[in-house]
């Protein structure tokens, strides 16, 4: 969400992105005046024209992480390139995409398109699961606006826990497959109806 500073000035203003708040029930009693301003401008008046939207090459089968609702990210804690398959399995189970920290990209474990952070992509998913990512500030600024951050890390002092809504201190090699498995089981039990992980507010 944007942070807008108008400490010493009035009027105050606020804006929110779509989906950041749950939809409340309609309150018939509510009062207040909504002023709709017509700015009398059509798309034809905008000098910049969108001719065509072309997607980057190499992103054909991967959902763009910038738009993903669920992101499972891996970092240096994965220790090896092949361990990214744990991350991939969990992401697949959630219908999400794989993200990564810069160090995993630098190590050559994953393509730079997956990099989240200052020099990578800024993401705002509903759920961001950080596995083996300590949470250097360069990474945090790219994902801290996620609705729900789940962090899995061995080091209880890791700064990722400062921004995490749910923190799991432990071995990701045990925890990640366990989560994947329990989702798989839950989905089987529910007949693939719904995902067990729903964005939790608050």
């Amino acid at each position: 969400m944007a942070t807008i500073f108008c400490e010493k000035r009035r009027p105050q203003m606020a804006s929110v992105r779509p989906h950041v708040m749950p939809m409340p029930c309609k309150d018939e009693e509510a009062t207040g005046q909504i002023i709709r301003e017509s700015i009398g401008m059509t798309e034809a008046d905008i000098p910049t024209k969108v001719l065509e939207v072309i997607f980057d090459a190499g992103q054909t089968d991967d959902q763009e992480i910038g738009d993903a609702e669920f992101i499972v990210s891996g970092g240096r804690g994965l220790l090896d390139k092949q361990n990214f398959k744990l991350i991939r399995e969990l992401a697949d189970e959630l219908g999400g995409v794989v993200g990564s920290s810069r160090s995993a990209v630098d190590a050559g474990w994953i393509d730079v398109e997956h990099q989240v952070g200052q020099t990578g992509k800024t993401v705002r998913p509903k759920i961001y699961i950080a596995c083996g990512i300590s949470g250097a500030i360069q990474h945090l600024v790219g994902m801290q606006d996620a609705d729900l951050v789940i962090a899995i890390n061995r080091d209880p002092e890791a700064p990722i826990f400062e921004v995490a809504d749910i923190g799991i201190v432990g071995d990701l090699f045990e925890i990640v497959p366990a989560i994947t498995e329990s989702i798989r089981r839950a989905k089987a039990a529910n007949g693939h109806q719904a995902c067990v992980l729903k964005p939790v507010q608050g």
Binding site: T3, F5, Q138, L140, V141
Partner: peptide, 8 residues
């Protein structure tokens, strides 16, 4: 600031 964090 370089990270775009809220000045507050």
């Amino acid at each position: 600031n370089p990270w775009g964090i809220a000045p507050s």
